[in-house]
């Protein structure tokens, strides 16, 4: 059996909750057990916003991740500082390197670090940084393989229903750019 526990963290408005939701949806459609557990309350307003996503072949215990995270996704510096230590031995740390820089000794030895210039990638491709979260999600899926890559398409069709379907092509492209960026960095 395998369990993936992933913390997505950033500022409110960066899309942490929705990237977690897309991943959770993809996993659910694969028939996995899933939990999506957000921080809630006043800290959403401009402060840090995070969501804990767990994907497993068996029943999920604590929906809150406090240790042994398969992956921490930091969209800004405060999030990196808050969660870097929760990565499991040999786990992955995926950082939006346009907004956060890993300090010396901040990641445990053996952590696989992916510095993804997500804002730049998104801006170059779409003229704005809105889709940086999907770039990051692509990198996460490459780094930890919690789902099959093709399942993300199923998730998009569920999350972007009806009139929102027009957003799918750009989201898909952003996801692929992030996936390929992480793949390049991993060579």
């Amino acid at each position: 059996m395998s369990t993936f526990s992933i913390i997505f963290a950033g500022f409110g408005g960066q899309g942490t909750q929705s990237m977690g939701k897309i991943l959770a949806y993809a996993a659910m459609l694969e028939g996995k057990e899933v939990s999506w557990c957000p921080s809630y309350g006043p800290e959403m307003r401009g402060g840090t916003s995070n969501v804990h996503v767990i994907i497993s072949d068996e029943g999920i215990g604590s929906p809150v991740i406090t240790k042994d995270a398969t992956c921490v996704v930091a969209l800004n510096k405060p999030s990196l500082d808050k969660f870097a230590h929760t990565v499991a031995d040999g786990g992955a740390l995926v950082i939006n390197s346009d907004l956060a820089e890993l300090e010396e000794g901040q990641a445990k030895a053996g952590t696989r670090v992916f510095n993804i210039p997500a804002n730049k990638i998104a801006t170059d491709a779409f003229g704005g940084s809105k889709l940086a979260n999907l770039v990051m999600l692509g990198a996460v899926v490459y780094a930890t393989s919690p789902i099959k890559v093709e399942s993300i398409d199923d998730a998009f069709t569920h999350v972007f229903e009806g009139g929102k379907a027009k957003f799918i092509p750009d989201n898909k492209k952003a996801f692929e750019l992030g996936f390929n960026c992480a793949k390049e960095l991993d060579k």
């Binding site: 939701k21 659910m28 999506w36 929906p63």
Partner: peptide
């Protein structure tokens, strides 16, 4: 509790 209210599960 608030966590069960706020979290998403299938």
């Amino acid at each position: 509790d608030g966590l069960i209210g706020q979290m998403m599960e299938p």
